[in-house]
Computed example of a mutant assay.
Amino acid sequence: MKIKNAVLLLLTAAIWGVAFVAQSVGMDYVGPLTFNCVRSLIGGVVLLPCIWYFDKKRKRERQVPVIPGARKTLVAGGVCCGVALCLASNFQQFGIQYTTVGKAGFITACYIIIVPILGLFFKKKCSPVIVGAVALSVVGLYLLCMTGGDLAVNKGDLLMLVCALLFSVHIMVIDFFSPVVDGVKMSCIQFFVCGAISGIGMLLYETPDMGQILAAWAPVLYAGVMSCGVAYTLQIIGQKGVNPTVASLILSLESSISVLAGWAILGQKLSAKELAGCALMFGAIILAQLPVGRKSPAVAEEG
């Protein structure tokens, strides 16, 4: 794995970790669908000048290879990524209303466990280490989510679990399309698709108010420009040619950053029981990446 890819994915995780704060604060002004609609459209618009610049540069340097079916593949990848991102981000936005920033970040990081499991559907074996990581994450989730006197899961925690599954699908879709398409263009398409679908839901189920949207300009701009326009694009570029499980490990660092951001900016705290759950989940994240058996020289070099 190239250092450049690791740095890009690490920057993505850092931006996303702080974005949990922006998403939480944004809910004080607008509804979840409105927030995601506006942020996604901003993210798409921010990338248009970048696409124009890079296209002009490639034409000037005569680096525009003609690949049959490339446009159709690009559109298909952008639409698939956009649908997956729309579902994942909206479940996340609804869920963050009912839980803390730190818990939201850690539960979302469950994709580090789910991604290898999804690999089974592509005939990839699941090692005993992964099974142990799944069991450890279940215990961690129990301590993190079962904060009441009964066994009921908090509504926000359940929504975040669904969000983690959907983000896992998003990572797998990117892994499929990113090696063969322009990452910036696919990212731009996914934002407009996500914004359009969220906009339809916004008009059907919410009452958007321009005054409230303008009042939430700070969290909306951060989520739109940084979390969408910058971070998701860095994810697509950084994940190109990288094992999706390894990529998900680096991206999962957003959970730790979200806890620190929630503590530093919003003053949110976790109980000792919840902190223990976070520790177990982070342990599961690390355990899922431990090498099993002997590696071939090629695999060892990639790692």
Rank of each mutant, 00 (worst) to 15 (best):
E254G: 08
G224S: 05
N154K: 08
V180D: 13
N154F: 00
L158I: 09
M160A: 02
Q190W: 04
I174P: 00
A247I: 03
I213P: 01
G201M: 14
I197K: 12
I250A: 07
L266I: 06
A231Y: 03
V246D: 11
V230Q: 06
P244V: 07
I200Y: 04
G183P: 04
S255K: 10
L159G: 02
M160Q: 14
L151P: 00
Q268C: 02
E206S: 03
V193W: 03
L221M: 14
M186V: 07
Y222P: 03
F167N: 07
L161D: 00
P244I: 09
M186Y: 01
S187Y: 05
G229L: 04
W263P: 01
S255H: 05
L166R: 08
G199W: 05
M202Q: 06
L266A: 06
L266D: 02
G224W: 07
G156E: 07
F167E: 03
Y232L: 15
F191S: 07
H170R: 09
L151Q: 08
A247N: 08
E206F: 05
I174F: 00
A164S: 14
H170T: 01
V193N: 04
C188A: 15
Q190R: 09
L214A: 15
C188D: 03
E254T: 10
P244A: 09
L234Q: 05
T233V: 04
I200M: 12
N154I: 02
M160R: 11
L249G: 03
M226G: 01
V173N: 01
G267T: 12
A223C: 13
A261C: 13
A261G: 08
Y222D: 10
P244Y: 08
Q268E: 15
T147N: 11
V246P: 00
E254M: 10
I250L: 13
T245N: 15
I197F: 08
C163I: 10
Y232M: 14
V181F: 03
A216M: 09
